[in-house]
Design a protein around this nucleic acid. Structure first.
Lengths: 398, 398
DNA sequence: AATGCTTGTAAAGAGTCTTTATAAAGTCGC
DNA sequence: GCGACTTTATAAAGACTCTTTACAAGCATT
């Protein structure tokens, strides 16, 4: 049940302040007059709001711009080092953490290898990682953002379920908040990736965006109307655990035949290992234990028949799942991130074709499926973006 | 690209005015003081806003309530006959239209049989139907709401594609607006049904709600955060045309093996007709031409083996599609409307089971799949609700 | 009847946006 | 180079709308 709140002057002010900040952020450098034109606010109001933002250190003046027939404008920008944010990615194999500025530029990076640590030990590693990143920061720290696979209760920062870490109902957000006494935001890794793509990706930003992250697992982050949509139980985008094969292979979620078991990087490598034994002609006909991501990617690039079959089959399954998603949400922009992108355009073309062929053509015809910004750090960046969004209202609508 | 707008005092006022109106609407009768408590606004502000609403005729005083130890409150209600709205449903076989009050109570109903009319003739029928409904109205008419299958461009009221009517890019909204000089809203039928369910359904309203309408076709209306979500091309919820069977039967959308071709009422009847010829033992082993909806429903209720097989198979396919939807959106409330509900709880139980088994249990466990409010008029009601929402802001959040 | 509580309104105050006016700093034409 | 015009930025006054404070009306309890 949603509770509706009254509108107040303070909200109006806060909203317009965010609007101005976001305008400065989006356009890199602008004058007060530019902001007034872009937002529809009067120059007077903009001046007032900008003064406040300068006072808080978030915005700064950076010289004069060229005149267009009158007084030369004073250019403004978001002070890049005004605030710093820590973002960490609790991926299955290693925890990576970044300290970034408000533009998402990495100021410090750190990593902790998980190496089979159990749940309790893993928590220690997270805190250790945060310690290092916090210590290294001389600037005002806005807070800590954490992205992790699994279902997260975003309001309290509780990890309801994380397959790779063996965590269940862990109040991670509370623990971190108490330790560092700064705002904390815990979110799902795919959702974080979506926000990174949205926040640090190229302008103009679309209304709606779905980012599908495919590596060991499969998950999506859904941005609707400029906001991260999390669903009633914060589990929106968990497309990896929809059954796509009847009585298929067991999945780490406990189900059978989930999309993850056929279309994830883990599934592809597993399937290649399994089938290679019976395909003497393939480049993958080697010791199964030696078959890994890189090897399958290489074989696929060399157009090895077995690799092609396995990878293309995975692409087809994914494409069908995305077709369902496109039909449901009619989202024009879909971006794929994660290690699966290593299979490149040949893989992507198959996904695109399947989406086209399996969704209503009127809808699928408008849909653009592309690779998103690459980079291992996308989840950590997104976790930072999530926090920035919450604390500053950067990049997202009210 | 979303354009962000500034916040103004007028918006604050308009929002609070809607908030008050909605509060009165939701609680049937309330005092100004009640509203102040419910909204957080001061009694002074509420008095002011209520005076305005009374001035516009939307709200009226209806005597005094019981005292709780002080002055007895003056009770307010939304003046039921303050405005009337016309809603029509351009269903494949007959057009039905309603004139309703702000509570969704039907004041006048009318119908036009399509009976094989072509696209141009069909448009004439719509206008004729609207003529009758408009003429019959003595009260101020808020506008016309139209719900139709297909993909609708809601901003302009243009029907981009409607399979049953053979319409493509028809500017229906403009035509109707010019003729009656009142606001018009054209929307997809499933989306309208969702809004009817949300607006006229029992309070408290959930944050998110998906209404799946299954009759001749299959479509969903998606309400997220209290608002109808329509997607980038207004086609959100078109789940009926996602491929679920490879190289399946042709669909009226031009595709093959769409969900509609296996799980809709049309598909069930068609399949029963087809299979009945080879099942001499079945209650459906009659002249195929005589097999219709009622007959299949009756056979299913009698636990006829053939009917059971066909209907259960359809339920399973639907359940899997809904599992994908649940996994994607993590929506807790799913309501099913349309003629398919005639198959009752036996059908529903299978759908529920498939949803549970084919989506991540952590998410599916919270999901409640039920039948929505029954009634043929749900689309017409929803079309009216869509208009009310647009014009008065009733029932929906900003 | 006195007291106290709740409801509703009126008057004054406060926050924030807009309008109008003005100063500063530039371009352009002559 | 100078005046006219533009554009930018700020200041002062005005307008809108919410809140605070005060008060009258109406009802219950004692």
């Amino acid at each position: 049940m949603r509770t509706l709140e009254k509108a107040t002057h303070q909200q109006t002010r806060a909203y317009n302040s965010q609007l101005v900040l976001r305008t400065v952020y989006d356009r890199s450098t602008v004058s007060r007059s530019d902001i007034a034109r872009a937002t529809g606010l009067t120059r007077t109001s903009v001046s007032d709001l900008v003064a406040e933002l300068i006072g808080s250190g978030l915005v700064e003046e950076v010289g004069r711009g060229p005149s267009t027939g009158g007084k030369a404008p004073i250019l403004l920008q978001v002070a890049p080092r005004a605030r710093e944010v820590i973002g960490v990615d609790l991926d299955g194999e290693a925890f990576t953490g970044l300290r970034v500025d408000l533009r998402g530029r990495v100021l410090h990076a750190a990593e902790r290898s998980l190496a089979g640590a159990d749940g309790r030990h893993a928590l220690g590693l997270v805190l250790d990682l945060l310690d290092e990143l916090t210590r290294s920061s001389p600037a005002p720290l806005l807070g800590n953002g954490i992205g992790t696979p699994g279902v997260i209760e975003a309001t309290t920062g509780t990890v309801r379920w994380a397959a790779n870490l063996d965590w269940a109902d862990l109040p991670l957000g509370r623990l971190v908040a108490e330790r560092y006494e700064t705002p904390v935001n815990v979110g799902n890794d795919s959702q974080a990736a979506a926000l990174a793509e949205y926040t640090f990706g190229a302008a103009p930003r679309p209304d709606n965006l779905v980012v599908v992250k495919i590596g060991q697992g499969i998950g999506a982050g859904i941005i609707l109307g400029g906001r991260l949509y999390q669903g009633d139980g914060f589990g929106a985008g968990e497309i990896g655990h929809t059954t796509v094969v009847e009585a298929g292979e067991p999945c780490r979620c406990g189900g059978l035949g989930c999309l993850e078991t056929v279309a994830s990087m883990r599934a592809i490598v597993g399937r290649a290992r399994h089938l290679a034994q019976h395909h003497s002609g393939s480049a993958l006909a080697v010791d199964p234990a030696s078959i890994d991501e890189a090897r399958v990617v290489a074989a696929f690039d060399e157009r090895d028949q077995l690799a092609t079959m396995v990878v293309e089959d995975a692409a087809r399954q994914l494409g069908r799942a995305l077709a369902a998603l496109v039909g449901t949400l009619n989202v024009r922009q879909i971006r794929i991130v994660g290690s699966i992108t290593r299979f490149g355009d040949r893989w992507l073309e198959i996904v695109r074709r399947e989406v086209r062929e399996h969704a209503l053509s009127l809808i699928a015809g408008d849909t653009v499926v592309t690779f998103g910004r690459s980079g291992e750090e996308i989840v950590a960046l997104g976790a930072a973006a999530l926090l920035m969004t919450r604390e500053l209202g950067l990049s997202l609508a009210r």
